[in-house]
Design a protein around this nucleic acid. Structure first.
Lengths: 221, 221
DNA sequence: CGCATCTTTGAGGCGAATCAATCTAAGTGG
DNA sequence: CCACTTAGATTGATTCGCCTCAAAGATGCG
């Protein structure tokens, strides 16, 4: 099912994978077309992934199809590493996405033998937990505009505050991340635009410029 | 500020604390009156706690007072162990609560020297993450009755399916856990009672009997 | 017993969802 | 290159679920 271009040479490893496993891990690379599933909820967690380019969404579904996106993963991010043997959610490519893949077993073995590797694994899980805790506050207690403002600031921060921010995900994805509908997200963005907090860049609606980060931060509550 | 009754002898350690630290950790015990703060968001994470009896809520606040409860901790549960040096939320006693306390440093030192201790720490953080992931789905995508049903099933499971379930927390606490108002929680409980999913036990509204766990599970979606 | 707190229930309002139409951008094929 | 198609985004009208406000009832503590 999973076609992979095996990289025989040991590629340069950067970011979190490096921190986790030093230089020992041999990686393959693979490109997923947009909308493709990387792994499904309940599947065996055989591989660990790091994004080279593109974006990944991880989510859970209710039986009637309602979807909650846990997180978006951007270039450099590690994902799919579970403590248990099974994935607790589904991962899909938001856009065409290039990932570096290594076997979970391989990575864990490397980690076992490195003092700092193990600490990094804990740090990684802790970071995910911290994000989840903040996101629970958002989902449970923030209003729609506050949610959207928080989302924009999160993306802005994670993309290192570029002048033009490029969102790889659709309004529906944003909505499912924030516990809203796509229409509400669209309305909130329009409101923020009318209030001169941001403006859309050029024709596309997925490139935008944050004009007032302070104002957005205040809205975020 | 924190009055503690130091236990000189090494008390019997059970549950997760034991799994984490073996028999090495020396604990004190302390009782918090209901509503008392155990530690605050941003405070230094000096101690680690395990509940002997009672219940603890951990939460975050927005600037205008809106509250999101991350989790309730029940007897046997460990809480307050951070990977970083600082607590990421506030912990308060829901009712009069007896806790076993040990220093974070002390516990971490013990863990350092035990292979399985370290694994347990990771397991603990992972369990918290898993709970958070499920709770995000609940907060973002479930309706009020589904939320309340899920809450009841969670408490039922964690109390080992007693015939009469005793809830230590108020309707407001439940509401702040589920991202609702206390009135909505009350209405949902009344609805479930009218639908013969549960009944209240005796006079008090905090003791209830689950009459149809299957029905509740179906509602939970 | 009396008072404060918690819970239930009702009435009405509001914010976000739903339903629906239009508009835009990006492909697709002639 | 342009008509045609399709997916995505915006905007409007309306509905609905939950919140807010309010009052009364129940519980528990001093």
């Amino acid at each position: 099912m999973l076609i992979r271009t095996r990289t025989v040479s040991r590629p340069a490893i950067d970011g979190q994978l490096a921190a986790l496993a030093g230089e020992r891990v041999c990686c393959s690379e693979f490109t997923y077309r947009r909308g493709t599933e990387v792994f499904g909820e309940g599947e065996e967690a055989e591989y660990v992934y790091q994004i080279v380019s593109g974006a990944i969404r991880t989510y859970k579904l209710l039986c009637d199809g309602r979807r909650q996106i846990n997180s978006f993963h951007l270039p450099g991010d590690l994902f799919g590493l579970e403590n248990g043997a099974v994935h607790r959610f589904t991962a899909e490519a938001v856009v065409q996405t290039r990932v570096r893949i290594t076997s979970r077993r391989h990575l864990l073995d490397s980690i076992e033998h490195e003092e700092e590797g193990r600490a990094s694994l804990l740090t990684l899980v802790t970071r995910n937990l911290q994000h989840a805790e903040n996101h629970m506050l958002l989902l449970g207690r923030k209003r729609s505009v506050e949610k959207v403002a928080a989302f924009l600031l999160e993306m802005d921060r994670r993309q290192d505050h570029p002048y033009v921010m490029s969102l790889p995900m659709s309004r529906r994805d944003i909505a499912d991340y924030l516990g809203l509908t796509l229409e509400t997200v669209s309305r909130a963005l329009s409101t923020l635009r009318d209030d001169h907090m941001l403006r859309f860049d050029g024709q596309t609606q997925r490139k935008l410029v944050l004009l007032d980060r302070k104002g957005l931060a205040q809205l975020d509550a």
